[in-house]
Computed example of a mutant assay.
Amino acid sequence: MNKILVVLLLITLKVSAQSPKDKEAILNVLEQQRLAWNKGDVEKYMQGYWKSDSLLFVGKNGPTYGWQKTLDNYKKGYPDKAAMGVLTFGIKKVEFLAKDKAFVLGSWHLQREKDEPKGYFTLILKKIDGLWKVVVDHSS
Rank of each mutant, 00 (worst) to 15 (best):
N38H: 05
F121R: 01
S16C: 11
I4S: 09
L35I: 15
K114H: 15
V58I: 15
L27M: 14
K76W: 03
L71H: 00
T88F: 00
Y74I: 01
L13E: 09
L13K: 06
Q18Y: 14
V42P: 05
D100L: 01
S139A: 14
W50A: 07
L105T: 07
V136H: 12
N2L: 05
G85I: 05
A36F: 06
W67P: 02
G62I: 14
Q18F: 13
R112Y: 03
L97V: 05
D100E: 03
S139M: 08
L5T: 07
G119K: 11
D115A: 12
V42D: 00
A83G: 12
K133W: 10
I4W: 01
L97F: 08
R112G: 11
K23L: 02
Y65L: 14
K60A: 13
A36V: 02
W132R: 04
K133I: 10
G130Y: 13
D41M: 05
G90A: 04
A98T: 03
P117T: 05
D41N: 11
L55S: 00
Q18E: 03
W67Y: 15
E43H: 14
K127E: 07
K93S: 09
T88D: 03
W37V: 02
P63C: 15
V94W: 05
F57R: 02
M1Q: 08
G119F: 12
D53Q: 15
S52A: 14
K21T: 10
I124W: 03
W67L: 08
N73F: 12
I26L: 09
P63G: 15
E116K: 14
S107I: 01
P117I: 10
F103T: 10
V58S: 08
Y74D: 06
P20V: 01
W132K: 03
M84H: 10
D80Q: 08
H109F: 03
N2H: 05
N61T: 12
Y45C: 04
P20A: 03
V29G: 04
V134Y: 02
M46K: 06
G62E: 11
Q47C: 15
Y45P: 11
Y65S: 13
H109L: 04
K75Q: 09
G90Y: 00
T12D: 02
G130H: 08
N73L: 13
I26N: 06
Q32K: 15
A83E: 08
K127A: 02
I124Q: 01
A36T: 06
I128W: 10
V6E: 00
D53L: 14
D41K: 09
V15R: 00
L123P: 00
L71G: 04
I26A: 09
G85S: 08
P20Q: 01
P63S: 15
G66T: 01
Q47D: 15
V58F: 07
I124G: 03
V86P: 01
G40L: 09
L97H: 07
L5N: 11
K114P: 08
V7L: 10
D115P: 01
V6K: 13
A25V: 11
L27N: 05
T12M: 14
F103N: 00
N61A: 14
L105W: 07
A98F: 08
D53E: 14
L10G: 06
T122V: 03
G90E: 04
I11P: 08
A17P: 06
K21L: 08
A102N: 00
